[in-house]
């Protein structure tokens, strides 16, 4: 496994820039249109057409808005990079306990990596040494 990575702050900046560059204009365009829908529903004779997409959107998205709020409040994003290591650590444990002939032929099995790195804690084997979060 390659552990040589760019420093983490570079990655954070890239992620933040992409989030801003993509989400802000998207949110602006989308939000403006959605408000227009609501205005049309209230003021236009044909506005009844706007009801079904608005309801559909609210039905699909309102729940996710609450879910997002719950995720923020319950600390799901505190250590935002942690789950990607936890997932690989769990895979390594599961593959390590599996019979050798069940680990496939494409190098996807992580269990065999344990043999060479047995003294390291799991997170050390997957975590970027430059990463601080």
């Amino acid at each position: 496994m390659s552990t040589q990575r760019k420093p983490f702050h570079t990655r954070s900046v890239v992620v933040a820039l992409m989030a801003l560059a993509i989400l802000v204009p998207s949110l602006y365009g989308f939000g403006t249109k959605f408000l227009e829908f609501i205005a049309l529903y209230r003021g236009d004779a044909d506005g009844a057409f706007a009801i079904s997409p608005i309801l559909n959107y609210l039905l699909a998205s309102l729940g996710f808005l609450f879910l997002f709020g719950w995720a923020v409040m319950s600390g799901m994003f505190h250590d935002i990079e942690r789950p990607k290591y936890t997932m690989l650590e769990n895979e390594a444990r599961l593959d390590h306990s599996a019979p050798p002939n069940s680990r496939g032929q494409f190098g996807g099995s992580l269990g065999r990596r344990l043999s060479g790195e047995a003294d390291l804690p799991y997170s050390s084997r997957f975590r970027d040494p430059h990463e601080h979060d």
């Binding site: 496994m1 390659s2 990655r11 954070s12 890239v14 992620v15 935002i80 990079e81 942690r82 789950p83 990607k84 290591y85 997932m87 690989l88 190098g107 996807g108 992580l110 990596r113 997957f126």
Partner: peptide
């Protein structure tokens, strides 16, 4: 055998 580049 390496994590996704950015989970965020």
């Amino acid at each position: 055998q390496k994590p996704i580049w950015s989970h965020g």
